[in-house]
Simulated scan of single mutants.
Amino acid sequence: MLTAVFSLTGALVFGAADFLGGLAAKRISALLATAVAALAGVVLLFLALPLLGGEWSVHDVLWGAISGVVGCIGIALLYACLAIGPMSILSPTTAVVSAIVPVLYGLVFAGERFDPTGYWGLGLALVAVVLVGFVPERGAVRPSLRGIVMAVGSGAAIGGFYIAIDQTSDESGIVPLILNRGVNAALMFMAVAVVAILAALRARRARDVVGVDAGSVIQSLAANPAGESADGRSGGGVEAGADGLEGERMPRADRSATATGIRLAVACGLVDATANALLLFGIRAGDLSIAAVLGAMYPAGTILLAALVLRERIAPVQWAGLVLALTAAAMLALA
């Protein structure tokens, strides 16, 4: 019962975090939004540690760090496959694989067993994951092999996150989550730094090219002070060079939008950390299989918030998925 309640609630909260993260990514880069969110989550978990408790051990610290690395791989592959598209196929593919991997682990290696109601509930939940995660697209094309491989890899990595967290002891409390968010933040900020360095190098090369062009203009003027062209007409060499240099200047970012993006990313991190804690409680309260398959319902929270806040339309197939998700949760709670 507690596993179903914690896991489904955690999935809805996860969806809210994704919604906030999406709003943040519209104002700042998705990479920076993810990094800021992870850092905010670490801070919240550290503040909650005295209240929720947790013992530090090498075993739990190691598995917490592993879950952070595996989780980063899963998210990176998810963004990559969604960029390739079509989202309507690859998004639910990732979600269902992320549920199947822990279910297979729980049934095959952890010795989890259910009554017939539980197995039917698991099957129904997997169908619900596909329907809830379905993103209707007009003119969607058949996915490429590369996109499918990335989607499966992303789902497997996210499923690996569930398995890694399941290896931690009950006595560790939220310590593994602190390591998870800490590793995630470190990797994301490293990625932001790499991108910034590459951008700076590209900008420097562009300035060097502009400098060479400006040097050519100066040499031409020195040879032909009047700025005359070969046919004797007066040319605007200095003005043209100045216009070219002016065109290379990048427009200033909107500080207000950036500040809003940072605040949204912080809110995303706080909500995401809460969702992770709920999921952890769900795993420890019962079976990994139930927690993972209900946790994969996270798109439900996103589409519900999008409908309430942004007035986006929920597709009939997604409504069907939401109904099946609630039905499956009730069956698994009774299993």
Rank of each mutant, 00 (worst) to 15 (best):
G139C: 12
L122Q: 04
L104Q: 04
I75Y: 12
L45W: 02
F46W: 10
D60P: 05
L104V: 14
T93F: 10
C81D: 12
Y79Q: 10
H59V: 07
A80N: 10
G41M: 09
A65Q: 07
P143M: 09
L52T: 05
A76P: 04
R138I: 10
I84V: 15
S67I: 10
L82G: 08
I89N: 09
A48R: 01
A140C: 08
P143R: 08
L47H: 02
V58P: 00
L131P: 04
A83Y: 06
W56Q: 08
V103D: 04
L104I: 14
A83N: 14
Y119T: 05
V70H: 07
W63D: 05
V43C: 06
G121I: 00
D115L: 10
M87C: 09
P143Q: 08
P116G: 06
V96I: 15
V130C: 11
I100P: 01
V129G: 08
I66H: 03
G54E: 05
V132F: 02
L47N: 02
Y105E: 07
G139T: 11
A110V: 05
S57P: 03
I66V: 15
C72Q: 14
A76S: 14
S144N: 03
R142E: 12
I73T: 14
F109P: 00
V70K: 01
W56I: 15
T94E: 12
F46R: 11
G133D: 04
A65I: 11
I84A: 11
G41V: 07
S67W: 01
G53A: 11
C81F: 09
S88G: 15
W120C: 11
I84W: 07
V108F: 13
P86Q: 03
Y79F: 15
I75H: 02
A65R: 08
A83T: 13
A65E: 04
A83M: 12
V61W: 06
G85H: 05
P116S: 09
C81W: 00
S57F: 07
G123S: 07
V129Q: 03
L77I: 08
L52G: 02
F46T: 11
F114C: 03
A65M: 14
L77D: 01
L77F: 15
P116F: 04
V69I: 15
W56P: 07
G85W: 03
P102I: 02
L51K: 10
I73F: 13
Y79C: 05
V127H: 00
T117R: 09
P50Q: 06
V103Q: 01
L62W: 12
G71C: 10
R138Y: 05
A110C: 09
G139P: 12
I89E: 07
P136C: 13
H59I: 04
L52I: 13
G133K: 00
